[in-house]
Nucleic acid binder design. Sequence first.
DNA 1: GTTATTTTTCATAAAATACTGAAAATACCA
DNA 2: TGGTATTTTCAGTATTTTATGAAAAATAAC
Lengths: 176, 176
Amino acid sequence: MSEKLSSSEALSAARDEFVTQWGAIGSAWGINRTMAQIHALLITSPRALTTDEVMEELKISRGNAHGNLRELVAWGLVRSVVRKGERKEYFEAEKEVWKMFCTIINERRRREIKPAMEVLAECAQRAKGARGAEADAFIRQIRALGDFLSMADNVLSKVASSRESSVLPLALKFLK
Amino acid sequence: MSEKLSSSEALSAARDEFVTQWGAIGSAWGINRTMAQIHALLITSPRALTTDEVMEELKISRGNAHGNLRELVAWGLVRSVVRKGERKEYFEAEKEVWKMFCTIINERRRREIKPAMEVLAECAQRAKGARGAEADAFIRQIRALGDFLSMADNVLSKVASSRESSVLPLALKFLK
DNA sequence: GTTATTTTTCATAAAATACTGAAAATACCA
DNA sequence: TGGTATTTTCAGTATTTTATGAAAAATAAC
């Protein structure tokens, strides 16, 4: 046992490690573990994979693989490709990190920030009818939250539509 | 029914709405619903509250209230205060939005970004033994992810330790 | 020390979420 | 039209997360 690993064994061990650990990290980030694993698998795969290959690699059911692949496609992190003359659907991930980042930012803006802003607007509206010091404080607090989110959303939208090369040097320079 | 609400009724209705909805938003953000509700309650409360008051307001059990209050304290979003001459523990939230934001950023850096960086470093290490084009691609991908996270962590740490007034105008100006 | 109040812990219950396996639907081909 | 490969759906099950409530521990007052 414990012979020195061959080069390709070392690679696939490292890759398995990455897939497993990325799944765990995903959980901590509030992302479905399996979805994170599939994503890890795809961004480190030299070629597009089929549902069956994903099932095989991760030892998961068809339904599970299918659903999570669809989710990844819905997020825009993975696209399905059809090879001419073949009927199987292949999946490949966007590998460029900055693009991945922008996609995630935009999806989270859409799914998380926007609804929160709507809720705050709604609450501010409702509170209009109230008078007094306590009501004023409440309204101010809600408004502060709303203004912050709106600002953050704005910044994120700008960042997510920039090229990496134009944002990072700037960020690092000015945040000395 | 459906008489016009008095001012204070309007306020507490708006506040209930906020607490409920903020809980829902929290879920979408991957945060325990009850924890988000308690937080919403505290940031809109004109005074510090006891565990029993939180239980009463949200109709939740002592264990639930207790655990989630502890979590909020662990996050640094809520602090417990003891009033002299009283033995009860009171809880109050940081209300200033920018401070809240910085606290959350730093906690997420610590809990989410750091571990991910460690995982990537570990994987990069392991992959060292592998040779060939595929191995090179893997190593490059892992490194790209690591570099990105490290950079993001850096930017966030700078942002989270700035004053609001010094960051926002800058961000908005340069991200035109 | 005894009692009263408040906090903490923990086993269990309930709810939410994710996964499986198999059937149904769809697309393609001869 | 029937046959085969592939994708999609979904009811049932398993797992994980969150909440409960009661009991134990800690703390303060007497």
